[in-house]
Design a protein around this nucleic acid. Sequence first.
DNA 1: TAGGACGTTGGAGTGCACTCGAAGCAAGCG
DNA 2: CGCTTGCTTCGAGTGCACTCCAACGTCCTA
Lengths: 142, 142
Amino acid sequence: MTVTESTPRPDGKDRYTISEVAAFTGLTAHTLRWYERIGLMPHVDRSHTGQRRFTNRDLDWLELVGKLRLTGMPVAGMVRYAELVRQGEHTFGERQQLLQDTRRDVRARISELQDALSVLDYKINYYAGAGAAPCAPEGATS
Amino acid sequence: MTVTESTPRPDGKDRYTISEVAAFTGLTAHTLRWYERIGLMPHVDRSHTGQRRFTNRDLDWLELVGKLRLTGMPVAGMVRYAELVRQGEHTFGERQQLLQDTRRDVRARISELQDALSVLDYKINYYAGAGAAPCAPEGATS
DNA sequence: TAGGACGTTGGAGTGCACTCGAAGCAAGCG
DNA sequence: CGCTTGCTTCGAGTGCACTCCAACGTCCTA
Protein backbone atom coordinates (compact mmCIF):
# COMPACT_ATOMS: atom_id res chain seq x y z
CA MET A 1 0.00 0.00 0.00
CA THR A 2 2.46 2.64 1.12
CA VAL A 3 5.80 2.87 -0.61
CA THR A 4 8.41 2.38 2.14
CA GLU A 5 10.29 -0.45 0.49
CA SER A 6 13.28 -0.35 -1.77
CA THR A 7 13.37 -0.60 -5.51
CA PRO A 8 14.54 -4.08 -6.56
CA ARG A 9 15.96 -2.66 -9.77
CA PRO A 10 15.97 -5.91 -11.76
CA ASP A 11 19.00 -5.89 -14.04
CA GLY A 12 20.68 -3.85 -16.72
CA LYS A 13 17.26 -2.68 -17.81
CA ASP A 14 16.51 0.95 -18.48
CA ARG A 15 13.05 1.00 -20.01
CA TYR A 16 10.12 0.18 -17.77
CA THR A 17 6.39 0.13 -18.46
CA ILE A 18 4.11 2.00 -16.16
CA SER A 19 2.98 -1.17 -14.43
CA GLU A 20 6.56 -2.21 -13.75
CA VAL A 21 7.22 1.16 -12.18
CA ALA A 22 4.01 0.83 -10.23
CA ALA A 23 5.24 -2.50 -8.89
CA PHE A 24 8.65 -1.10 -7.97
CA THR A 25 7.45 2.06 -6.30
CA GLY A 26 4.19 0.95 -4.76
CA LEU A 27 2.45 3.83 -6.48
CA THR A 28 -0.47 3.08 -8.77
CA ALA A 29 -0.32 3.64 -12.51
CA HIS A 30 -2.99 6.27 -12.01
CA THR A 31 -0.80 8.11 -9.55
CA LEU A 32 2.21 7.95 -11.85
CA ARG A 33 0.22 9.49 -14.68
CA TRP A 34 -1.13 12.06 -12.31
CA TYR A 35 2.41 12.96 -11.17
CA GLU A 36 3.31 13.52 -14.79
CA ARG A 37 0.24 15.65 -15.47
CA ILE A 38 0.94 17.97 -12.59
CA GLY A 39 4.57 18.40 -13.51
CA LEU A 40 6.13 16.23 -10.87
CA MET A 41 7.99 14.04 -13.40
CA PRO A 42 10.89 15.26 -15.56
CA HIS A 43 9.39 14.39 -18.96
CA VAL A 44 8.96 10.67 -19.35
CA ASP A 45 10.11 9.01 -22.55
CA ARG A 46 7.57 7.31 -24.85
CA SER A 47 7.61 4.20 -27.05
CA HIS A 48 6.87 4.51 -30.77
CA THR A 49 3.22 3.80 -29.95
CA GLY A 50 3.08 6.52 -27.31
CA GLN A 51 3.38 4.35 -24.23
CA ARG A 52 5.47 5.57 -21.33
CA ARG A 53 8.93 4.14 -20.96
CA PHE A 54 10.44 4.98 -17.60
CA THR A 55 14.20 4.92 -17.09
CA ASN A 56 16.35 4.21 -14.07
CA ARG A 57 16.72 7.96 -13.79
CA ASP A 58 12.96 8.24 -13.41
CA LEU A 59 13.05 5.54 -10.78
CA ASP A 60 15.69 7.50 -8.88
CA TRP A 61 13.58 10.58 -9.12
CA LEU A 62 10.54 8.73 -7.83
CA GLU A 63 12.59 7.45 -4.93
CA LEU A 64 13.47 10.99 -4.01
CA VAL A 65 9.88 12.08 -4.42
CA GLY A 66 8.92 9.25 -2.09
CA LYS A 67 11.29 10.57 0.54
CA LEU A 68 10.00 14.09 0.16
CA ARG A 69 6.48 12.79 0.38
CA LEU A 70 7.37 11.05 3.62
CA THR A 71 8.53 14.34 5.04
CA GLY A 72 5.00 15.62 4.59
CA MET A 73 6.07 18.14 1.98
CA PRO A 74 2.98 19.14 0.02
CA VAL A 75 2.82 18.07 -3.59
CA ALA A 76 2.98 21.69 -4.67
CA GLY A 77 6.38 21.96 -3.01
CA MET A 78 7.65 18.91 -4.80
CA VAL A 79 6.38 20.30 -8.09
CA ARG A 80 8.23 23.50 -7.33
CA TYR A 81 11.39 21.50 -6.74
CA ALA A 82 10.89 19.60 -9.98
CA GLU A 83 10.55 22.89 -11.83
CA LEU A 84 13.81 24.10 -10.36
CA VAL A 85 15.50 20.90 -11.46
CA ARG A 86 14.15 21.39 -14.99
CA GLN A 87 15.45 24.94 -15.04
CA GLY A 88 19.04 23.82 -14.68
CA GLU A 89 22.01 24.35 -12.48
CA HIS A 90 21.50 28.02 -11.83
CA THR A 91 18.70 27.08 -9.44
CA PHE A 92 21.01 25.20 -7.08
CA GLY A 93 20.72 27.90 -4.44
CA GLU A 94 16.95 27.94 -4.56
CA ARG A 95 16.79 24.16 -4.42
CA GLN A 96 19.03 24.12 -1.41
CA GLN A 97 16.86 26.71 0.28
CA LEU A 98 13.74 24.68 -0.37
CA LEU A 99 15.37 21.59 1.06
CA GLN A 100 16.59 23.49 4.09
CA ASP A 101 13.11 24.77 4.79
CA THR A 102 11.85 21.24 4.50
CA ARG A 103 14.54 20.03 6.87
CA ARG A 104 13.50 22.62 9.40
CA ASP A 105 9.90 21.41 9.14
CA VAL A 106 10.94 17.79 9.49
CA ARG A 107 13.04 18.53 12.56
CA ALA A 108 10.13 20.38 14.11
CA ARG A 109 7.80 17.53 13.29
CA ILE A 110 10.14 15.02 14.86
CA SER A 111 10.27 16.90 18.10
CA GLU A 112 6.49 17.25 18.10
CA LEU A 113 6.27 13.52 17.73
CA GLN A 114 8.78 12.90 20.47
CA ASP A 115 6.83 15.21 22.71
CA ALA A 116 3.61 13.35 21.93
CA LEU A 117 5.45 10.10 22.48
CA SER A 118 6.29 11.04 26.03
CA VAL A 119 2.65 11.81 26.73
CA LEU A 120 1.75 8.45 25.26
CA ASP A 121 4.34 6.71 27.41
CA TYR A 122 3.06 8.49 30.47
CA LYS A 123 -0.49 7.35 29.86
CA ILE A 124 0.45 3.84 28.92
CA ASN A 125 2.34 3.62 32.18
CA TYR A 126 -0.63 4.98 34.01
CA TYR A 127 -2.85 2.30 32.56
CA ALA A 128 -0.23 -0.32 33.28
CA GLY A 129 -0.19 0.47 36.98
CA ALA A 130 -3.89 1.32 37.20
CA GLY A 131 -7.20 -0.44 37.51
CA ALA A 132 -7.45 0.32 41.23
CA ALA A 133 -6.97 4.10 41.47
CA PRO A 134 -10.34 5.56 42.52
CA CYS A 135 -9.81 9.29 42.02
CA ALA A 136 -6.82 9.97 39.83
CA PRO A 137 -6.05 13.59 38.98
CA GLU A 138 -7.64 15.15 35.92
CA GLY A 139 -6.19 14.37 32.53
CA ALA A 140 -4.51 11.31 33.88
CA THR A 141 -7.77 9.39 33.70
CA SER A 142 -8.46 10.22 30.10
CA MET B 1 -3.17 28.39 13.01
CA THR B 2 -1.87 25.15 14.42
CA VAL B 3 -2.24 24.49 18.11
CA THR B 4 1.29 23.89 19.44
CA GLU B 5 1.19 26.35 22.32
CA SER B 6 0.27 25.88 25.92
CA THR B 7 -2.95 26.73 27.64
CA PRO B 8 -2.53 29.86 29.74
CA ARG B 9 -5.31 28.74 32.07
CA PRO B 10 -6.23 32.17 33.44
CA ASP B 11 -7.23 31.79 37.06
CA GLY B 12 -9.62 29.95 39.31
CA LYS B 13 -12.10 29.94 36.46
CA ASP B 14 -13.93 26.79 35.45
CA ARG B 15 -16.52 27.92 32.91
CA TYR B 16 -15.28 29.04 29.53
CA THR B 17 -17.19 30.19 26.47
CA ILE B 18 -16.44 28.59 23.16
CA SER B 19 -14.39 31.56 22.00
CA GLU B 20 -12.26 31.47 25.13
CA VAL B 21 -11.56 27.82 24.52
CA ALA B 22 -10.81 28.60 20.90
CA ALA B 23 -8.27 31.18 22.03
CA PHE B 24 -6.65 28.79 24.49
CA THR B 25 -6.44 25.81 22.20
CA GLY B 26 -5.90 27.43 18.83
CA LEU B 27 -8.84 25.47 17.48
CA THR B 28 -11.71 27.38 15.92
CA ALA B 29 -15.15 27.50 17.47
CA HIS B 30 -16.33 25.63 14.40
CA THR B 31 -13.90 22.84 15.07
CA LEU B 32 -14.87 22.63 18.73
CA ARG B 33 -18.52 22.23 17.81
CA TRP B 34 -17.57 19.69 15.20
CA TYR B 35 -15.54 17.74 17.77
CA GLU B 36 -18.61 17.61 19.95
CA ARG B 37 -20.88 16.51 17.10
CA ILE B 38 -18.66 13.61 16.18
CA GLY B 39 -18.34 12.42 19.76
CA LEU B 40 -14.83 13.61 20.47
CA MET B 41 -15.89 15.66 23.49
CA PRO B 42 -17.15 14.15 26.75
CA HIS B 43 -20.50 15.98 26.88
CA VAL B 44 -19.99 19.69 27.30
CA ASP B 45 -22.02 21.55 29.88
CA ARG B 46 -24.51 24.23 28.78
CA SER B 47 -25.64 27.54 30.26
CA HIS B 48 -29.35 28.04 31.04
CA THR B 49 -29.76 29.45 27.52
CA GLY B 50 -28.05 26.55 25.85
CA GLN B 51 -24.63 28.03 25.26
CA ARG B 52 -21.61 25.82 25.79
CA ARG B 53 -19.66 26.22 29.01
CA PHE B 54 -16.36 24.37 28.92
CA THR B 55 -14.58 23.37 32.11
CA ASN B 56 -10.91 22.91 32.98
CA ARG B 57 -11.55 19.23 32.56
CA ASP B 58 -12.60 19.86 28.97
CA LEU B 59 -9.47 21.91 28.45
CA ASP B 60 -7.38 19.02 29.73
CA TRP B 61 -9.14 16.68 27.40
CA LEU B 62 -8.56 19.00 24.47
CA GLU B 63 -4.90 19.16 25.37
CA LEU B 64 -4.72 15.38 25.19
CA VAL B 65 -6.64 15.39 21.92
CA GLY B 66 -4.14 17.91 20.61
CA LYS B 67 -1.30 15.56 21.45
CA LEU B 68 -3.03 12.63 19.84
CA ARG B 69 -3.72 14.74 16.79
CA LEU B 70 -0.03 15.58 16.58
CA THR B 71 0.74 11.90 16.50
CA GLY B 72 -1.24 11.71 13.29
CA MET B 73 -3.86 9.50 14.85
CA PRO B 74 -6.99 9.70 12.69
CA VAL B 75 -9.99 11.41 14.19
CA ALA B 76 -11.87 8.12 14.16
CA GLY B 77 -9.25 6.67 16.49
CA MET B 78 -9.57 9.56 18.89
CA VAL B 79 -13.33 9.17 18.84
CA ARG B 80 -12.85 5.50 19.64
CA TYR B 81 -10.66 6.48 22.59
CA ALA B 82 -13.24 9.00 23.77
CA GLU B 83 -15.89 6.28 23.66
CA LEU B 84 -13.73 4.01 25.79
CA VAL B 85 -13.26 6.81 28.31
CA ARG B 86 -17.02 7.33 28.44
CA GLN B 87 -17.56 3.65 29.04
CA GLY B 88 -15.62 3.71 32.29
CA GLU B 89 -12.73 2.01 33.97
CA HIS B 90 -13.32 -1.45 32.61
CA THR B 91 -11.94 -0.26 29.29
CA PHE B 92 -8.50 0.50 30.71
CA GLY B 93 -6.96 -2.43 28.90
CA GLU B 94 -8.41 -1.47 25.57
CA ARG B 95 -7.35 2.13 26.00
CA GLN B 96 -3.86 1.04 26.78
CA GLN B 97 -3.81 -1.13 23.70
CA LEU B 98 -4.96 1.71 21.52
CA LEU B 99 -2.28 3.95 22.94
CA GLN B 100 0.35 1.29 22.45
CA ASP B 101 -0.63 0.88 18.82
CA THR B 102 -0.39 4.61 18.41
CA ARG B 103 3.02 4.64 20.04
CA ARG B 104 4.20 2.01 17.61
CA ASP B 105 2.97 4.14 14.71
CA VAL B 106 4.64 7.24 16.10
CA ARG B 107 7.95 5.44 16.55
CA ALA B 108 7.75 4.19 12.97
CA ARG B 109 6.91 7.66 11.74
CA ILE B 110 9.84 9.15 13.60
CA SER B 111 12.26 6.76 12.00
CA GLU B 112 10.77 7.44 8.59
CA LEU B 113 11.34 11.10 9.18
CA GLN B 114 14.88 10.56 10.36
CA ASP B 115 15.53 8.53 7.28
CA ALA B 116 14.14 11.27 5.07
CA LEU B 117 16.17 13.77 7.06
CA SER B 118 19.40 12.05 6.18
CA VAL B 119 18.49 12.18 2.49
CA LEU B 120 17.73 15.85 2.90
CA ASP B 121 21.05 16.45 4.62
CA TYR B 122 22.85 14.58 1.91
CA LYS B 123 21.32 16.72 -0.81
CA ILE B 124 21.75 19.95 1.06
CA ASN B 125 25.40 19.11 1.45
CA TYR B 126 25.60 18.30 -2.20
CA TYR B 127 24.22 21.71 -3.13
CA ALA B 128 26.50 23.35 -0.60
CA GLY B 129 29.62 21.96 -2.20
CA ALA B 130 28.27 22.11 -5.75
CA GLY B 131 27.82 24.60 -8.54
CA ALA B 132 30.84 23.33 -10.42
CA ALA B 133 30.20 19.59 -10.76
CA PRO B 134 29.46 18.96 -14.47
CA CYS B 135 28.21 15.37 -14.43
CA ALA B 136 27.26 14.30 -10.94
CA PRO B 137 25.83 10.78 -10.54
CA GLU B 138 22.10 10.26 -11.00
CA GLY B 139 19.79 11.19 -8.18
CA ALA B 140 22.42 13.43 -6.68
CA THR B 141 21.60 16.12 -9.20
CA SER B 142 17.91 16.12 -8.52
C1' DT C 1 -33.29 50.31 24.79
C1' DA C 2 -30.28 50.08 21.02
C1' DG C 3 -26.20 48.29 19.02
C1' DG C 4 -22.87 45.10 18.36
C1' DA C 5 -20.38 41.15 19.68
C1' DC C 6 -21.01 36.56 20.42
C1' DG C 7 -23.69 32.24 20.54
C1' DT C 8 -26.78 28.47 18.34
C1' DT C 9 -28.04 24.97 14.51
C1' DG C 10 -27.87 22.01 10.19
C1' DG C 11 -25.92 21.48 6.21
C1' DA C 12 -23.01 22.69 2.41
C1' DG C 13 -18.29 23.72 0.74
C1' DT C 14 -13.06 23.39 0.63
C1' DG C 15 -8.40 21.56 -0.22
C1' DC C 16 -5.50 17.91 -0.52
C1' DA C 17 -3.86 13.74 -2.53
C1' DC C 18 -5.12 10.60 -4.67
C1' DT C 19 -8.39 6.98 -6.94
C1' DC C 20 -11.31 5.25 -10.16
C1' DG C 21 -14.31 4.66 -14.36
C1' DA C 22 -15.33 4.84 -19.19
C1' DA C 23 -14.17 4.62 -23.83
C1' DG C 24 -10.96 3.51 -26.94
C1' DC C 25 -6.34 2.09 -29.18
C1' DA C 26 -2.40 -1.37 -29.65
C1' DA C 27 0.39 -5.60 -28.98
C1' DG C 28 0.86 -10.43 -28.45
C1' DC C 29 -0.97 -15.17 -28.47
C1' DG C 30 -3.46 -19.64 -29.90
C1' DC D 1 -9.64 -13.77 -35.91
C1' DG D 2 -10.81 -13.17 -31.40
C1' DC D 3 -9.24 -12.53 -26.79
C1' DT D 4 -6.70 -10.79 -23.07
C1' DT D 5 -3.82 -7.54 -21.19
C1' DG D 6 -2.14 -3.17 -20.91
C1' DC D 7 -1.90 1.31 -22.40
C1' DT D 8 -4.12 6.08 -23.46
C1' DT D 9 -7.12 10.38 -22.04
C1' DC D 10 -10.45 13.10 -19.54
C1' DG D 11 -13.09 13.84 -15.97
C1' DA D 12 -15.54 12.53 -12.03
C1' DG D 13 -15.47 10.45 -7.31
C1' DT D 14 -13.44 9.50 -2.57
C1' DG D 15 -11.99 10.22 2.24
C1' DC D 16 -10.24 13.06 5.55
C1' DA D 17 -10.38 16.99 8.48
C1' DC D 18 -11.94 20.66 8.74
C1' DT D 19 -14.27 25.31 7.37
C1' DC D 20 -17.80 28.18 6.39
C1' DC D 21 -22.58 29.91 5.63
C1' DA D 22 -27.24 31.48 6.63
C1' DA D 23 -30.55 32.53 9.70
C1' DC D 24 -31.45 33.33 13.89
C1' DG D 25 -31.12 33.87 19.32
C1' DT D 26 -28.60 35.96 23.39
C1' DC D 27 -25.62 38.83 26.24
C1' DC D 28 -23.44 43.03 27.57
C1' DT D 29 -22.33 47.83 27.64
C1' DA D 30 -23.57 52.84 27.04
